[in-house]
Amino acid sequence: MKANVNQADQTGNEQDQGRLAEIPIVDAVFTFRDRFRHWGYRWGVGRMTAEVTPGLYRLGSPDAQSPVLVSANYRMSFDQLRRALVGRAVWILVLDTKGINVWCAAGKGTFGTEELVRRLDRDRLSDVVTHRKVIVPQLGAPGVAAHRVKQLSGFTVIWGPVHVRDLPDFLDRGEAAPEMRRVTFTFAERVVLAPMELRPAFLPLMGVGVAVALAVGWRSGAAFFLASISAPVAIPALHDALPGTWLSVKGVFWGLIASGMAAWAFSVSGWPLLALGLSVTAVSAFLGLNFTGSTTYTPVNGVKREMKGMLPGIISAAGLGLILWVVIAIRRFWA
C-alpha cells in the first residue's frame, strides 16, 4: 500500500501534526495487483497470511469530524473497505483479528468488545476526533456489545451496513435502510466460495478415481472422478434449485443427478453403476454437509441435527460403495 504524500493534513494545530504524521495513509485505489491477490485468496493462496497491521489509518484527508470505520485485519476485509470509499475522507481503525474476517472473528470473539476498547485507547482515537462515535460493521455484533463499549470507552457504536458496497449510501443517509441490515446468499456470493470447496476435495477424489480406474476400469474411474468433483461447484451454484432444507440433502440430489449423467456419458451399467451411484452420492452429500460452514445462514444446532440425521446414511452409502467396488475388482481379476 503506497502512501500518498501529497495529502494535506486538515486537522488544526501543530501538536496534532506530529500525531497525524504517525497515522499511515491508505490508498483507496484498487490496483490490478490487489485484484490478483484477492483472486489468490479465493483459491486459498496466501489466504492465511493475508494480514494488515492493526491500528489507525486515514483515507483521504479526514479531519476531527470525519467518521471512524472499524474493520478486521484480514487483508480482503480491509481492501474491500478502502475500495468502497474512493473519494471519501474517513478514519479506519483496524482491530487485531489474527487475519480473520469480521464475521468469523466476531463469532470467535477476537473482533470483540475487549479488542475494540483496547484499540480505541491504544490508538488514542479521542485525540484525533472530537465526536465520540465509531461505525462498526453489523456482522461484528456477535462479538461487540455496543452498550459495553459505551460504558468502557465512552464511544457510541453505530452499526454499519452488512455489505461494504452499501457504505457510501449509509454514510450519506446517516443510517441503514432495512435491506442494508440483511445478509444475503446470492449466486455470485455462493460461486466465489467454490474454489475453496474444490481445492481440498480435488486430490482425494482424484486418488479414489485413479484407484477405481485401475481396479475396475477407466470408464468407472473417470465417471466417479468427474461426477464427484462436480459437487463442490454444483452445490454452491445450484443451491437454490436443488431440493432440501439441509445442504447434505441437496448434495444427495446432486449426487444422483451427477452419477446418472456420468454413467450415461461413460456407459457404466450393472454393478459398477450401483457402486458409482452409492459412492458419488455419499461424497456429494458429505461435501454438501461441509458447505454448511461457508453459508450465511446455518445455525450450529441445526447443523448438529443434520449431522445426526445424515452422517450414518452417508457413511453407510460410502462403505457399501467401497465394498461393491472391491468385489467388482476381485471378480474382474479372479474370475
Binding site: A141, Y297, T298, P299, V300
Partner: peptide
C-alpha cells in the same frame, strides 16, 4: 435464526438467550 448470538450479545437487559457456536459441520 442462525444462532450467531449478535442479539444476545447486544441485549443490555438479558432478554435474549441463544446457544451459539460455529454452524460448520467440518469444524464440528
Amino acid at each position: 435464526c442462525m444462532e450467531c448470538g449478535a442479539c444476545m450479545r447486544n441485549c443490555a437487559f438479558g432478554a435474549v438467550q441463544v446457544e451459539t457456536g460455529v454452524g460448520c459441520a467440518a469444524a464440528l
